[in-house]
Design a binder for these strands. Sequence first.
DNA 1: AAATGATACGTTATAATATAACATTAATAA
DNA 2: TTATTAATGTTATATTATAACGTATCATTT
Lengths: 171, 171
Amino acid sequence: MLTNSRLVHQPHDHGRCISAALTRANDLCTEKKARMTITRESVLRLLWQSHQPLGAYQLQDQLSKLLEKPIAPPTVYRAIEFLLQLGLIHRIPSLNAYIGCPFPNSEHSNLFMICSQCGSAAEVAHNTINGLLQSASDKANFTLQSQTLELFGLCPQCSSNPDDSEGSSHD
Amino acid sequence: MLTNSRLVHQPHDHGRCISAALTRANDLCTEKKARMTITRESVLRLLWQSHQPLGAYQLQDQLSKLLEKPIAPPTVYRAIEFLLQLGLIHRIPSLNAYIGCPFPNSEHSNLFMICSQCGSAAEVAHNTINGLLQSASDKANFTLQSQTLELFGLCPQCSSNPDDSEGSSHD
DNA sequence: AAATGATACGTTATAATATAACATTAATAA
DNA sequence: TTATTAATGTTATATTATAACGTATCATTT
Ligand SMILES: [Zn+2]
Ligand SMILES: [Zn+2]
Ligand SMILES: [Zn+2]
Ligand SMILES: [Zn+2]
C-alpha cells in the first residue's frame, strides 16, 4: 500500500537502482518499438545517478560532459519528452525538475515526498489515496484524468540530522 | 469534508466571491498590520475576476490596463509574493499560475481540481486526505511540512459539454 | 545495394517565467 | 520635521522551455 519511500531515503545499493532502471527502460522500448538512443539512455542514467530531481539545464551540463560535446537545450528537452511519454521519468512541477520513475507501467499515485533540506525525492504509490481522490472527484462531478501530489518536508535522514547543510546528499 | 468544489464549477453569483475575498483580505491585513495597497488589491481583484488561474504576465497586462500605467514584472511578482505570504492566493505549480484562496487561515489541503478544457480551478479542503497523507508520511518517517495536490480532468460543466471549445469559460 | 520515408538530432533564435540590484517615492514613527 | 521603514520604479538579467528549419541516421522497400 505504501511502496518505495523507505528505500529511497536510506543508504542503499544505488547501483542496483540504476541498472534496474536501465533494464526496465530497454524492455519497455523493445515492447513499444521505441528507440533507446545514446542521448536518451544518458539522460535516464543521469536522472538515476541520485534520487535528486535534476533540472533540464543541469542535465544539459552533465550530458555535454558525459558525451564530450556541446548539447543544446532542445536535445535535452527531446530526451525528456521521450522518457516522459514512456513513463520512465516524471516531472516535478514545483521544482521544474525531472526524476526517474521506479515503477513505470504500474498503477501510479504520482505522489512525491520531497526533502526540503537535501533535495531528494521519493515516489510513492498509495492505493488508498488514489481511491480517496477518485471518490472526492466523483462527489464533485469532476472527471479525474491525472494528478500530481507533492509533499514537502524532511526525509528520514534529514529528520534525524536536521542540522545537515543543504547540499549534503545522503544518496 | 469536501468544500468549495461544487460552488466554483457551477454558475454562481461571482460578485459575491470577489467582494468576500476583498473583505477577508482587508480584515487579514488589519489583523497582521500589513498594508493592502492599490497594486496588491488590484492583483487580488484580478485573480478573483474568474476562477481561472492567471500567470504573472497575464496579471501584468491586466494590471497595467487597470492602473493605466506601465507595470514591470517585479511589481507583479512583489504583489504575488505578498499575497502568497498572507495566504490570500496560491501558486499552482504545474500551470505557473496563481489563484485566489477561498478560505485563507483555514485548515488547508492545497488540493486543486483543474479543468483541462476550460482552465478553471477549484480549491478543495478535504480532511480525510490530509490525515491519510500525514499517516503515509509518518509510516515513511517523513516529516511532512507542506503539500500541493493537483488533480487534472474535466469540471462538471465540461464533463457534460465535452465538445466545448478550449477558451469557453463558464465562470 | 540504392532509393525511400520516418525518426532523431544539430543549430539558431526566441518565448515565457522569474529574480537581482539599486534608485526613488510614500508611509509611518520619533 | 526628521529619521526610519516599507513599497514601488527601473534596468538588467537569470532560468526554464519551445519554434523553426536543416542535417544525419535508421528502417523498410524495391
Ligand atoms: Zn512513477
Ligand atoms: Zn533529506
Ligand atoms: Zn487556499
Ligand atoms: Zn471546465
